[in-house]
Design a protein around this nucleic acid. Structure first.
Length: 590
RNA sequence: GUUCCUGUGGACAAAUUGGUUAAGUCGUUGCUCUUUCACAGCAAAGAUUGCGGGUUCGAGCCCCGUCAGGAAUACCA
């Protein structure tokens, strides 16, 4: 055990844990395991307005399902607790006070409303307001007010925040494990709030204080944190902790699939309508009469699907509506993967299903899509990292072994659901049938199918390499559990010959008289029959197959017959042939 | 707008750190196997490494410029 290596995964309980968060957790996990270090779970719940009940439980359950174990955390214990920031509230004030005392922070009395108004005023002049070394000289804070005024305000209980006093004309150098050296000039940094009006710390303060107190050695987090890392380094410096500052590793973002990859002739109209619906939903103030224009614009940019995003560039000629539309589309068609994407594009972005207050806030998870946790982890591991070898399938233990921070890439990784399905299929094929049967049982029960383990095992064995996810076994392979719903007409139209029935029934009878209704025996007997009657496999197989499963695709015929059993096969053949006649008749009539 | 990050076939990516003909996987297409589908195996198509300069005997890799995409720019994390 290496007690110098201590990492933390620090999610915020504001909803379901996003796939990007899961990957962050995974990389933290892999690195600690590899180094023999300690992994800590810390709940960052300093924003009570965004707190969502159940989110923490969801995070815990997700991590457990995925098989990532933590050494310290809420409910786990450890010597550095508590591990919920809300329970550490009293700790942070002291450090904020330190900052004030050392002249590196100040009280600010500006109200949120004042600041919003300020931002809007700047906005209207096409500028961006920043609370920084210049603007703070005109604002309502302990730097501009007299000591007397500040004292009165404080004593009268007027709400205040404590802001970091970012120094002028300095450079902050960050030595990031994945990005290398990154330099920020302090003149470009804003005076971030450290302590909020409600006495809670912001992420920035809480994070640094906790990382220090918990003796964190490496901070592995998403790239979205890179810009504020300069502030964090400043904080370590001002608090006198610079020599024990953790090392940073900023992970590349997980990006949405590019629109070019999923827009097709078939779906582009529906996609456009859906986007326009969402647009008006989100921008209630925009008149519905703009709708047809919006749709026209979308079908125009979807026309040639190349470079869809580039066509969203705002031009001076655009009116307000078009501008709003473009901004909306851009945020929906490019950039970081978001929870809405899964919904729209039909893939999961959360490990487990999440049931929110509304339908819009409820999402289906990887587990419910039928993914195996190990497959999801394996897929995620390759989003931003690779071992440099040709191996792609890794058990968790193998991943730990192969993992290193310096093989993490810098460019954003594009979410590719096809690849995810491929990983799952590999795991499905690799898993033994008994394991899969256990996983499948709840779904079988839900559908009220009554089957024996033995039968399920046979079905799983036949179906698992033909599907991507677990539920597909009983969805596309439903005919193992209930009568055929629909016969594939194309083959019937093309090849069915009502006169063939006699032979097919003949063969059926011959097979039924076999001492054992077993795949190899059935096959051997069929061969003999075909030869004797001058028939080929193609004359018989497709019809047996459609009769039994409704489709010409699927597992080997004789194995299917064995599994279904003599009686069921007979029943299906006898109902199918008349049905084929009927289907065939419609062809002649039409 | 500003700051920072990132650009290698459709997607993910490798390239022994400046060395010959730019790996591999997914996806696509074809072939083999097979009664079908899938799996597996084989093969093909797909790249002037975003673009333009420069340094060098030699550049995907170093330098300069440029373009594009992304992130951040909250009393959110």
């Amino acid at each position: 055990m290496n007690d110098k290596i201590r990492l933390r995964f620090a999610p915020s309980p504001t909803g379901a844990l996003h796939i990007g968060g899961v990957r962050t957790a995974l990389y933290n996990y892999l690195f600690t395991q590899k180094m023999g270090g300690t992994l800590i779970l810390r709940i960052e719940d300093t924003d009570q307005t965004r707190y969502v009940p159940g989110a923490e439980a969801y995070i815990l359950e997700s991590l457990r399902w995925l098989g990532m174990e933590f050494d310290e955390g809420p409910g786990i214990g450890g010597d550095f607790g508590p591990y919920r920031q809300s329970e550490r509230k009293s700790l942070y004030g002291k450090y904020a006070q330190n900052l004030i005392d050392s002249g590196n922070a100040y009280y600010a009395f500006d109200t949120p409303e004042e600041l919003t108004a300020m931002r809007e005023a700047y906005e209207s002049r096409k500028e961006t307001f920043r609370y920084d070394g210049i603007t703070r000289q005109q604002l309502n804070n302990s730097l501009t007010l007299s000591a007397e005024e500040v004292k009165t305000k404080l004593e009268s209980g007027e709400p205040y925040t404590i802001r970091l006093k970012v120094p002028r004309d300095e450079e902050v150098l960050i030595n990031d494990i994945v990005r290398g050296e990154v330099v920020f000039r302090t003149n470009e940094l804003d005076d971030k709030v450290m302590l909020k009006g409600d006495g809670m710390p912001t992420y920035h303060l809480a994070n640094i204080v906790d990382d220090h107190l918990m003796k964190i050695s490496h901070v592995v987090r998403g790239e979205e944190w890179l810009p504020s890392t300069a502030h964090h380094v400043l904080l370590y410096r001002f608090l006198g902790w610079e020599d024990t500052m953790p090392q940073f590793a900023h992970l590349p973002l997980i990006l949405k699939p590019s629109p070019d990859s999923y827009i097709t002739k078939e779906n582009k109209v529906a996609l456009a309508e859906r986007l326009v619906d969402e647009f008006f939903n989100k921008n209630q103030e925009i008149n519905q009469s703009y709708r047809s224009d919006a749709l026209a614009f979308l079908s125009q940019i979807f026309q040639d699907k190349k470079n869809v995003v580039a066509k969203l560039k705002i031009s001076k000629k655009d009116d307000d509506n078009k501008r709003a539309l473009k901004v909306f589309l851009k945020s929906n068609l490019s950039g970081k993967l978001s929870k809405r994407d899964g919904d729209r594009l039909g893939f999961p972005v959360f490990p487990l299903s999440w049931v929110g207050e509304t339908k819009e806030d409820s999402f289906k998870g990887f587990r419910e899509f039928g993914f195996m946790p190990q497959a999801m982890l394996n897929f995620l591991a390759f989003l931003g990292w690779n071992p440099g070898t040709e191996q792609e399938i890794f058990s968790l233990a193998e991943m730990v072994d192969a993992f290193s921070l310096d093989r993490i890439g810098k460019a954003g990784a594009r979410f590719d659901f096809d690849k995810a399905k491929w990983f799952n299929q590999q795991y499905l094929i690799q898993s033994d049938n008994a394991t899969l049967v256990e996983l499948l049982k709840p779904m079988v029960k839900e559908k009220n199918y009554e089957v024996t383990d033995e039968y399920l095992t046979a079905a799983v064995g036949m179906m698992k390499e033909r599907v991507n996810t677990l539920p597909e076994i009983i969805e596309t392979g439903y005919y193992f559990f209930e009568p055929v719903k629909e016969y594939e007409e194309k083959m019937i139209h093309k090849k069915w010959n009502p006169d063939r029935k006699t032979a097919l029934l003949d063969l059926k009878e011959q097979l039924e008289n076999l001492p054992e209704y077993q795949a190899e025996k059935l096959e051997a007997s069929t061969k003999i029959y075909l030869e004797a009657n001058g028939l080929g496999f193609g004359d018989v197989f497709p019809f047996y197959r459609i009769a039994l499963s409704g489709t010409t695709k699927g597992p080997a015929l004789f194995e299917m017959m064995e599994a279904l059993g003599k009686a069921e096969v007979e029943k299906r053949l006898l109902t199918a042939f008349p049905a084929f006649d009927k289907v065939f008749a419609t062809k002649i009539n039409s």
